Simulated assay, not measured.
Amino acid sequence: MRILISTDTYPPDLSGSSFFTYRLATGLAELGHDVHVVCASDSGPRKDVPEDGVRMHRLRSVPLVIHPTVRFVPPVGVPRALRGLVAELMPDVLHTQDHFTIGRAAMAAARRHGIPVVATNHFMPDNLLPYLPGWLHRPVKSVAWHDFRRIYARADHLTTPTQAAADLLARYGFGRYVEPVSCGVDFGRFHPSERPKVVARKEFHLPDVPTIAFVGRLDAEKRLDEVIRALPGVPAQFVLAGRGVRRFELERLAHRTGVADRVFFLGYVPDAQLPLVYAAADVFVMPGIAELQSIATLEAMASGLPVVAADAVALPHLVRPGENGFLFTSGDVDGLAAALNRVLSSEHERARMAEASHAMARSHDATRTVTRFEEIYRGVLSGLKR
């Protein structure tokens, strides 16, 4: 099949959606499909280049004002660009990852030619609200959900990463069936490490002491301040792999809290080294409140780590309290500290939880995800809604 994937975020952007889209595109290409991705330029100017077996169509972009680590494609000219691209490629199917600037233009262009559309949702307004004044939260949330319903109602088949995410869409008035399809995790890369933790820690110049790890964007909705506030009561170091707009604020908080000597910011960690971050850790923490799945949590589980996560949105689907980790109520710093201490206090319990995490992650193998999307594409091509 010739498949066109449209997305407003793609590597080197750092987000679960961008990583998922990259793995899906390259996975489909490895199976012999002719895969094209239209997304924001990583450098500014428009360019059409091959990357990792995928033909990239990168549109002119600028930094997003409220989130400068993300590049944004100004809407002027995008509908025309997508009409031209779709007419040139005439893909068998369009798979859009969002309903923003590029996604909605791609969907409109596909409909002009009768090309079936598969749409996946990775978005919830809570990802955006922390960057806006409080008085705007309610109206922006209302408008955002209305816009989502209006655009995605036109797709032929809809997916989202988890059943919790599908339930969220129904709760906000989306009346169509939405199929949960996991973002998946690459077990070829993420698995329990055979190297001792001390060796993995040396790779990042970390002390050989109990280690809590986080991987992802250092942004407001991740609630990383709660982990730093909990750290005075937890005998461990906290390692953060990623970049984001809240890094300097978190660094200042670590100094004010008196734990700066136990908080390590690794910055951007290249994809090839990411498994080492998990190998260096004893427990993974995910305090975010806007996770429709959390690919980083899945990677940690596949790597054999217990997980302490916020009891919010889809994270309870990944963490079974007492089995592979613990949940805590967002904002309850003492509860977070207690959960981390329960994991760190017993090597035997950590080993048991590590095995449970790895076993639970098995059902999210990325090869199943790619295979399911192949089936969905063929289904919409044959006129079936599966």
Rank of each mutant, 00 (worst) to 15 (best):
M90W: 10
P125F: 04
L85C: 12
G114L: 06
A106N: 05
L85I: 12
T101Q: 06
G103S: 03
Q97M: 12
T101F: 05
I102N: 00
M124E: 14
L94G: 07
E88P: 08
R104Y: 05
R104K: 15
V86Y: 06
A109W: 07
L85Y: 02
V86W: 07
D92S: 15
A105N: 01
H95N: 10
L82I: 08
F100M: 05
F123H: 15
D98T: 12
F123I: 02
A109K: 08
Q97W: 04
H122L: 00
V93P: 03
M124F: 08
T120Y: 06
M90S: 15
A110R: 04
G84E: 15
L85A: 13
V93H: 04
A119Q: 15
A105D: 02
N121K: 06
D92F: 12
P125N: 04
L89H: 05
V93F: 05
A105E: 02
V93A: 13
P91D: 13
V117R: 00
L85H: 09
P116T: 07
T96S: 10
I115S: 12
A110T: 11
I102D: 02
L89E: 11
H113Y: 14
V118F: 07
L94K: 03
F100Y: 07
I115N: 12
H113G: 10
H95V: 03
A110M: 08
E88L: 11
A109L: 09
M124W: 05
H95K: 06
F100D: 00
A87T: 12
H122R: 06
H113C: 04
T101I: 14
T101Y: 08
T120R: 14
A109P: 06
G103W: 01
A106H: 07
A119D: 03
V118W: 01
A106T: 02
N121S: 14
V117K: 00
M107R: 13
P116A: 05
R111S: 12
R112C: 11
G114N: 14
T120C: 08
G103H: 01
V118E: 00
V118I: 10
H95Q: 13
A119T: 09
N121D: 11
R104E: 14
F123V: 05
P116M: 05
H113D: 06
A110Q: 11
F100W: 09
M90Q: 15
M107P: 07
R111W: 08
H95Y: 02
L94D: 04
G103E: 01
M124L: 13
F123N: 15
N121F: 02
V86M: 03
V117S: 00
G103N: 01
H113A: 15
H95P: 00
G103Y: 02
A119E: 09
D98E: 14
P125W: 02
R111L: 14
D92G: 14
L94T: 05
T96P: 01
G114Y: 04
V117W: 00
H113I: 06
V118T: 00
R83H: 14
A119Y: 15
V117Q: 00
H113V: 07
D92W: 09
V118D: 00
H99I: 10
A106S: 12
H99E: 11
H122G: 00
R112N: 10
R112D: 15
F100S: 01
G103V: 02
